[in-house]
Design a binder for these strands. Structure first.
Lengths: 204, 204
DNA sequence: TGCATTTACTAAACAGTGTTTATTATATTT
DNA sequence: AAATATAATAAACACTGTTTAGTAAATGCA
């Protein structure tokens, strides 16, 4: 009965087709303009067909959300080779910020929008988030062990670092950095300078 | 011609009626469920009437956004009496965090949602934001003058502080703090502890 | 092979949304 | 009292996510 396997494969291909189309549209026109009807038009199926492969719109965006975490993860793990944990922390932070600035829509979906988190409530855990946060925890615990940053509770420190870079990126992405009344490239410079200052304040 | 004045007054009263209804609904059921039709139902007018007093839905929420800034401002200015600027900074930060945790919908509108910022582009400046940010700048420049915090560029430091508290609150409000896998009250405690640590790292 | 059954798909509808237009009723001015 | 200006609305437009009922094709079994 190889038919069942082929059917399963075809089902997965259709899911991929939908996700690919949705991702293209999302990155081009944003969440709101990526409607089920637009996706259906794009892949040349009826809107109702999409509901045979995904429970609802949120489920589609949950998959995109997970894919985005894979991409961020690849970026962050690039710094695995840096021996000094504080230097690594600095590199991770700058890469995180750069990822946010260069992929504002992905960043939105990963860390700002409510939709993907609704999905997580009904499932089990925020696996993708835990993976990235775990990497931060590992790096920070090395920093603390080697007494290279000011001593404090590991989780409190992690929240401090994450909140900080998230604050920078999310204020920028959601257009609150206009408060500086600077041109865009100068604003970005302030973000990186501010992060550098933060890291230097963290050091022992 | 006192009629014109009365008409002007009536127009303003109608605007207030709409804003009051919209605010009530927004705080009770959130942005999405506050539809023009729901507001119209609530004030017992037709949906089209609302468009005689407001250009669109965003304009209504822009007014609510401005009102929210007034409320935050009142909270923050409570600490005007604190002589030591670092102590004042600490109090301001904690009040900002508390405001965000206790008024998540207002916080959303003020610092996360895109809608109100669209309005600002078409107008002049982000007056409400500048007011609050100005207060932070004043406090920080005092801290720097008195050499009570580590020396650095004023604006870079301000962005550092704001990004940090915003990061804490926005990750909480948009449900990313679930990563800590702690009950709600413990999570809030981590936020405050993390801020305390941040302030102590900022001090000279 | 022929028939029954399962699977895949879709047209149409439902219940919403923000917004605009054409029309009516009311209030003001002349 | 008639003409004009203002205020309010019913209905429509163009969307949205989602569900239902019905059709056509592929598969399982005799």
């Amino acid at each position: 009965m190889a038919i069942k396997e082929r059917k399963e494969r075809e089902k997965q291909e259709m899911r991929n087709l939908i996700i690919e189309s949705a991702t293209r549209m999302f990155l081009k026109q944003g969440y709101d303009k990526t409607s089920i009807r637009n996706i259906a038009d794009d892949i040349e199926y009826s809107p109702a067909t999409i509901y045979l492969y995904f429970k609802d719109k949120d489920e589609i965006f949950y998959v995109i959300h997970e894919n985005a975490f894979d991409i961020l993860d690849q970026h962050l793990r690039q710094h695995d080779g840096i021996a000094d944990p504080v230097e690594r922390l600095d590199a991770i932070g700058r890469t995180y910020i750069r990822f946010g600035l260069e992929n504002p829509d992905y960043y939105d979906l990963m860390f700002i929008m409510r939709a993907p988190m609704e999905q997580i409530k009904n499932e089990e855990k925020w696996k993708a988030g835990e993976c990235a946060f775990g990497y931060l925890l590992t790096t920070l615990s090395e920093c603390l062990e080697q007494k290279k940053i000011r001593p404090a509770d590991l989780h409190v420190t992690a929240i401090q670092v994450w909140s900080y870079v998230h604050g920078l990126v999310s204020l920028y992405v959601r257009e609150r950095m206009c408060i500086l009344m600077l041109p865009d490239d100068a604003t970005r410079e302030v973000l990186y300078s501010s992060f550098a200052l933060f890291i230097s304040n963290l050091k022992t």
